[in-house]
């Protein structure tokens, strides 16, 4: 029993070390790819972004609407309905926007990246590239990684915006909160630092979600079962990492 725990711990440390090395390898190639292969990166931003955008818009809108409802019904007890806009914007910009976008991204685009790279590996496409003297890391992996890093903050901004619009719809149009108060409270109280926190988180989560997706794909066993396992793991591992990191970042910024 103790031995198994020890083994598992050892395995974890080893995998984590390998992941860090992989991350460094991607970073080493990144400037070159970003400058010389910018078209590949743009294509991947488009690819991952388009995959996720409908999902982000719909989820953002509904999360905002639900938040609006809940916050309103609570604040009404204190006769503070005017601050609905403030509270939903606060929650969305700092927490819900970055976290949920990262989770949705992992579920939609992350799985696609992992299975795509895994399948390329399983069908010898990566070996074929190596045999054509083309390194698959800068050609295949890094553009997807960078594309994800760029896409996540943009998607987060869209998610948060849609959320606030959703809250506006519910609070102002349906429940009759004063339009002026809704926006003015938000503007007066929300500090730039709150926004920066959200942006910082979305950048970190973007790196984590993209890194884990390409990592799982690149290290998938080259079989159908291996690829499907990699896809599942992408979602699970990203979700856990993002939530743990979110807590750590929030705690350290307080």
């Amino acid at each position: 029993m103790l031995r198994e725990i020890y083994q598992a711990l050892l395995e974890f440390v080893r995998t984590f070390g390998a992941l860090q090395l992989f991350f460094l390898r991607l970073l080493r190639h990144s400037p070159f790819v970003f400058v010389k292969r910018f078209r590949l990166v743009v294509f991947q931003v488009y690819n991952t972004g388009v995959l996720s955008i409908v999902l982000i818009v719909v989820c953002g809108g509904f999360i905002g609407a639900v938040l609006g409802l809940q916050v309103y019904s609570n604040l009404k007890r204190f006769n503070a309905e005017d601050t609905v806009g403030l509270f939903t914007a606060f929650a969305l910009a700092k927490e819900i926007g970055p976290v949920l976008t990262a989770l949705l991204f992992a579920g939609r685009a992350g799985t696609a990246l992992a299975s795509e790279i895994g399948l390329m590996k399983a069908t010898d496409q990566l070996s074929a590239m190596e045999m054509m003297a083309v390194n698959p890391i800068p050609r295949v992996v890094v553009p997807r990684f960078l594309g994800g890093i760029i896409a996540v903050p943009i998607l987060t901004a869209i998610f948060t915006t849609m959320g606030i619009l959703g809250a506006h719809l519910v609070a102002v149009e349906l429940l009759g909160v004063d339009v002026g108060a809704f926006w003015q409270q938000m503007q007066q109280t929300l500090e730039p630092s709150d926004i920066y926190e959200g942006i910082f988180k979305s950048v970190v989560f973007g790196i984590v979600a993209s890194l884990l997706a390409v990592w799982e794909g690149y290290n998938a066993l080259p079989t159908a079962a291996g690829v499907s396992r990699a896809t599942t793991r992408t979602v699970v591992v990203t979700a856990i990492s993002v939530l743990i990191l979110d807590f750590m970042i929030t705690a350290s910024l307080l």
């Binding site: 795509e116 074929a128 003297a133």
Partner: peptide
């Protein structure tokens, strides 16, 4: 990689890039 540029390899299953 320099050496491999002198190689042309036909894989058993083709291994075309599917995208």
């Amino acid at each position: 990689y320099k050496l491999r540029r002198r190689f042309g390899v036909l894989f058993q299953n083709g291994a075309l890039l599917t995208d």
